[in-house]
């Protein structure tokens, strides 16, 4: 099977779905790039970090639509297009920018179906880069998925591997509900096996990336890779099971509970700030549904309750580390 990067996997998903369905369009700033610049430059960017590269040349300006820097108009146009029959994929570059168009996401797109009594679908995807580790500091590095997971009507996707990125993006485009699709920028160059043919990974189905008997680690996004490394390192010593929920909404509560009932020990790793994050949610779930199975207190590992700092040493301290995860697992076995 061919090895592809996380970036290439998403590009391939977009390309295949655009070929498959003429109602799929891309809309956002610089997804083509170069419009209004020197002659022949249109299409020269393909997104800030090259995820949509080549699609402008394949599908033209009618389906790869560069816009002004107007996030509310981008998301609103995607929502309006979705409720009238298209399947738009809107790109907002960094998830930090969702704030300037939050109304269009949570008051408009997320609520149409309920407010209109089920007489409407809003099949749209909003893409955005997330996460720290790029030196981009407080306004370009956040992990705001808990905010969006909180909102009924939205689905929130957080892939951790190239394989999942492709399958989840295809599902996101085919899904009839609005989907927030979050791409960890540190993962773009990671490589993995990605099948050529289109495939969809259903939402709400956790991936068990490592099977084990002693400790369950539930990890989100980039943290899945950290958890896998810890599990591999401890092989032969502690048997660690790693769960990647892949979507924070819907959340696969069933597989999480099954695993915790089996191991009796839980570590949750979420790069998001700690208050009301997904780690809080998972621990709350286990406390209310499976407390009697726990052999030790659950451990929550998150970023501190601070903005993301710019200084590299501080940013490293901010991001949950493999060492912290390993120590937590070891503590639970004492």
């Amino acid at each position: 099977m061919p090895l592809k990067s996380f970036r290439e996997a998403i590009n391939e998903a977009l390309c295949q779905e655009m070929a498959n369905d003429p109602s799929v369009i891309l809309i956002g700033e610089d997804i083509a790039g170069g419009n209004g610049g020197v002659e022949g430059a249109a299409g020269s960017s393909g997104g800030m970090l090259g995820v949509t590269k080549g699609l402008y040349h394949d599908y033209g300006p009618e389906r790869v639509i560069d816009t002004p820097i107007s996030e509310s108009a981008i998301v609103g146009a995607a929502a309006g297009a979705a409720m009238t029959g298209l399947r738009p994929v809107a790109e907002l570059m960094f998830m930090d920018f969702f704030g300037v168009c939050f109304d269009q996401i949570y008051n408009q797109a997320a609520k149409f179906r309920y407010m209109f009594g089920g007489n409407c679908t809003t099949p749209m995807v909003v893409r955005g880069m997330v996460g720290a580790g790029f030196g981009s500091a407080a306004q370009h590095s956040q992990a705001l998925w808990p905010i969006f997971s909180h909102i009924p009507g939205l689905k929130v996707v957080l892939p951790s591997s190239p394989h999942d990125a492709k399958g989840l993006m295809i599902q996101a485009i085919r899904d009839d509900d609005p989907v927030i699709f979050l791409e960890h920028k540190v993962l773009y160059d990671t490589k993995g096996e990605v099948p050529e043919e289109p495939y969809a990974i259903p939402f709400g189905e956790a991936n068990i990336t490592r099977e084990g008997d002693d400790v369950t680690i539930v990890a989100f996004g980039r943290m899945v890779n950290f958890a896998n490394e810890v599990a591999d390192k401890l092989t032969g010593n502690i048997s660690v099971e790693v769960l990647d929920p892949r979507t924070t909404s819907p959340l696969d509560t069933e597989v999480i509970l099954e695993s915790v009932k089996h191991t009796g020990r839980l570590v949750v790793v979420d790069e998001a700030n700690p208050i009301c994050n997904m780690a809080s949610e998972v621990i709350s779930l286990v406390a209310t549904e499976a407390l009697q199975y726990l052999k030790a207190r659950p451990i929550k590992i998150s970023a501190p309750h601070t903005p993301v700092p710019a200084a590299p040493n501080l940013e490293t301290l901010y991001i949950p580390s493999k060492e912290t995860i390993e120590k937590a697992v070891a503590n639970l076995m004492e």
Binding site: S72, G76, A77, A79, G80, A81, T84, L86
Partner: peptide
């Protein structure tokens, strides 16, 4: 208003 842009885009 942004929604109308989307409907027009359709």
């Amino acid at each position: 208003s942004p929604l109308a842009c989307g409907a027009a885009l359709t």
